[in-house]
């Protein structure tokens, strides 16, 4: 464990909590892509199957359970409790265009052709594109509430810190997980455009982020 990965995990947890509390307290999921949240719940489900087969550490187990619970709780808020405020019109990204290539690639490019390994690989590839429906929804509506942009900021920060974690681990331990790194770089690139808008608009105190 290193400071980059620990702070990355904390940012990830903060992002998930920000989103959950935003929906819970505003009793609305307007502007939130339910599809992205479904994809994230799928990412955690397919990645954390080893929760029952491999014990890494208390921290690892606790964080996996927390991420799973919060992901499904958020999905249930969007699709059940506050479903009247779910803007399915704007949340129109065709997720099958993500799931099919990701599933296909996880069968082609993996470390070993075993169910657990293929599901893990699927979750790695899927995580790199899971935010796209949310980013697409923001471009479609042309705006995002500032709390939603803070959610995306912490999510992007978590990914950026993971890149630093991999540099550190390669330098310190010679650790290099090619699938995770390549997929993580692609995922972080998707946040670059958002980061630009975030730093130039939201942090300028304009509150809402409106796209040009």
């Amino acid at each position: 464990m290193n400071i980059f990965r620990l702070s990355g995990d904390v940012c990830h947890l903060v992002a998930i909590i920000i989103l959950f509390l935003k929906i819970w307290r505003s009793k609305s999921c307007a502007g939130i892509s339910g599809k992205s949240q479904l994809l994230f719940a799928l990412v955690f489900t397919t990645r954390y199957l080893d929760l029952f087969t491999a014990f890494i550490s208390i921290y690892n187990t606790v964080m996996k359970v927390v991420f799973l619970v919060l992901a499904y709780a958020t999905v249930s808020l969007i699709y059940f409790r506050f479903r009247k405020s779910y803007d399915s019109e704007s949340d129109s990204f065709r997720v099958e265009f993500l799931l099919v290539p990701v599933a296909g690639l996880s069968f082609l490019e993996n470390y070993s052709f075993t169910p657990l390994e293929i599901l893990w690989t699927f979750s790695i590839y899927l995580e790199s594109v899971a935010i796209l429906p949310q980013l697409f929804m923001i471009t479609k509506t042309g705006e995002a509430e500032s709390i939603t942009t803070h959610y995306l900021f912490f999510l992007g920060l978590y990914r950026t810190l993971y890149l630093a974690n991999w540099v550190w681990r390669y330098h310190e331990e010679g650790f290099f997980d090619q699938i995770a790194v390549v997929s993580g770089v692609v995922q972080t690139i998707f946040y670059c455009d958002f980061f630009y808008l975030y730093f130039t608009r939201v942090l300028r105190g304009s509150g809402k982020m409106t796209l040009p």
Partner: peptide, 10 residues
Amino acid sequence: DPDALPKDEL
């Protein structure tokens, strides 16, 4: 080979 590594990252 990476798959021998425990998947210790979240």
